[in-house]
Simulated scan of single mutants.
Amino acid sequence: MSIIDKALEANSNYAKNYDPKLGKRPAPKIAVVTCMDPRLSDLPGILGLPQADLDVIRTGGPAVTEDVLGELVVSNRILGTTEILLLNHTGCGFTTFTDDELNAKLSASTGDASPAPMRFFSYKDPEQNTREQIKKVRSHPWIAKEIPVRGVIFDVDTGRLREVKA
Rank of each mutant, 00 (worst) to 15 (best):
161 L>D: 03
159 G>W: 10
158 T>K: 10
45 G>K: 15
94 F>V: 11
160 R>W: 00
135 K>A: 15
133 Q>W: 04
92 C>L: 04
22 L>N: 11
130 T>Y: 05
28 P>D: 07
95 T>S: 07
120 F>N: 02
35 C>S: 06
59 T>P: 02
13 N>S: 15
23 G>D: 14
86 L>P: 01
84 I>A: 02
83 E>N: 09
98 T>E: 02
137 V>Q: 06
134 I>L: 13
60 G>P: 01
70 G>D: 03
132 E>I: 12
59 T>K: 11
136 K>H: 06
72 L>W: 01
22 L>P: 01
18 Y>D: 12
40 L>R: 05
54 L>R: 03
141 P>C: 09
63 A>G: 04
63 A>C: 06
88 N>T: 11
22 L>K: 11
70 G>K: 06
125 D>P: 00
99 D>M: 06
105 K>H: 15
165 K>D: 12
84 I>W: 02
101 E>T: 13
78 I>N: 10
63 A>H: 01
104 A>F: 07
40 L>G: 01
104 A>S: 10
70 G>R: 03
43 L>G: 03
155 D>M: 10
160 R>Q: 13
125 D>G: 00
150 R>E: 13
39 R>F: 05
75 S>I: 08
153 I>A: 04
4 I>P: 00
97 F>W: 11
92 C>P: 00
45 G>W: 14
144 A>P: 00
73 V>Y: 00
105 K>R: 14
101 E>G: 08
123 Y>I: 01
130 T>E: 07
42 D>P: 03
154 F>H: 09
165 K>N: 13
161 L>K: 09
98 T>R: 01
17 N>M: 14
53 D>T: 11
18 Y>A: 12
1 M>W: 05
149 V>C: 01
78 I>D: 08
138 R>L: 09
46 I>W: 08
165 K>M: 11
114 S>Y: 08
132 E>L: 12
106 L>F: 12
59 T>L: 13
93 G>H: 05
107 S>I: 08
139 S>R: 12
6 K>S: 15
107 S>F: 04
124 K>L: 01
25 R>I: 11
66 E>F: 11
100 D>R: 07
158 T>P: 02
150 R>W: 09
126 P>H: 02
109 S>F: 12
139 S>E: 15
49 L>V: 14
77 R>V: 11
144 A>I: 14
107 S>W: 03
9 E>C: 08
109 S>L: 13
125 D>V: 01
123 Y>S: 00
24 K>P: 00
128 Q>G: 06
117 P>M: 07
53 D>I: 12
165 K>H: 13
95 T>F: 03
125 D>T: 00
28 P>E: 04
154 F>W: 04
129 N>W: 05
144 A>C: 11
100 D>Y: 02
154 F>Q: 03
29 K>T: 09
69 L>W: 01
140 H>Q: 08
83 E>F: 09
156 V>D: 00
98 T>Y: 00
68 V>Q: 02
21 K>S: 11
133 Q>A: 08
104 A>M: 10
89 H>G: 04
8 L>F: 15
99 D>K: 04
97 F>L: 05
91 G>E: 10
151 G>A: 05
106 L>C: 05
